[in-house]
């Protein structure tokens, strides 16, 4: 499998007045095409910082991050925008939908700015929201909103789907449902899925689990027999 993303000795230091915080102290990892990768770590471990850098929202202070041969750390603001636009689909803990756009419009918003988008309505049908496509976020439950968010990320037809605690705000059943859709995307469309979480249960579904602790990779697990979403519980 081709390597989609690779980091080496990735460091990120925050300077806050007189205080210097080293959030990442040299991260080395590799993600292959079509992988389901879970980045697992307690809060404060640096996993959010890592997600931000992988997502092209932040740049490292030192080290390398290579996306399909192109170093992200050297990219201009504009190139990073294009990277976010074309390569990455984001899913957030709190959905971050546009409150004054309907479900359908939230999805088509991204399809309007990408080159090879999927049909917004089809994607919404795939996450089981075809009938609710003209509802506004405030008219949808949390799980439904997160499914709209998944549809929005998927409709861009991105290379990587990047999820930040996607089930963090949901109850178990709804959370499992969401994971199911993410899994489907990963398996059926053969797209790379990176989930950042502190919820260890999710890691049972992954091909590869990267444990982050105190700004470093503590351990990398390969899972030869990942389970389905139905089998997960927490």
């Amino acid at each position: 499998m081709e390597t989609v993303l690779r980091t080496s000795n990735l460091k990120r230091t925050f300077f806050n007045g007189n205080v210097t915080v080293q959030a990442l102290k040299g991260i080395d990892l590799e993600v292959s095409e079509g992988d389901f990768v879970v980045i697992l770590g307690p809060s404060g471990s640096g996993k959010s910082t890592l997600l931000n850098i992988i997502g092209g929202m932040d740049v490292p202070t030192d080290g390398e991050i290579i996306y399909r041969g192109r170093p992200l750390q050297n990219m201009s603001k504009h190139e990073l925008t294009l990277y976010r636009r074309k390569a990455v689909g984001f899913i957030f803990q709190f959905y971050n939908l546009m409150p004054n756009l309907t479900a359908y419009e939230n999805v088509s918003l991204v399809s309007e700015i990408t080159d090879h988008p999927l049909d917004p309505l089809k994607v919404l049908e795939e996450v089981g929201l075809g009938a609710r496509s003209d509802h506004f976020p405030s008219q949808l439950s949390g799980g439904e909103q997160q499914r709209v968010a998944i549809a929005r990320a998927v409709a861009k037809n991105p290379d990587i789907l990047l999820c930040d605690e996607p089930t963090g705000a949901l109850d178990l059943e709804t959370g499992k449902q969401v994971l199911q859709y993410l899994h489907k995307f990963n398996r059926e469309m053969k797209r790379t899925l990176i989930v950042i979480t502190h919820n260890a249960a999710i890691s049972r579904m992954a091909d590869k689990v990267i444990h982050i602790k105190d700004g470093r990779v503590a351990m990398v697990e390969h899972n030869s027999q990942p389970v389905t979403a139905e089998e997960v519980t927490w």
Partner: peptide, 16 residues
């Protein structure tokens, strides 16, 4: 702010 930041994250430029 939050909405605009989201738009940036999903790949819209400041100009857009």
């Amino acid at each position: 702010e939050r909405e605009l930041a989201t738009l940036m994250v999903i790949g819209m430029s400041e100009r857009e």
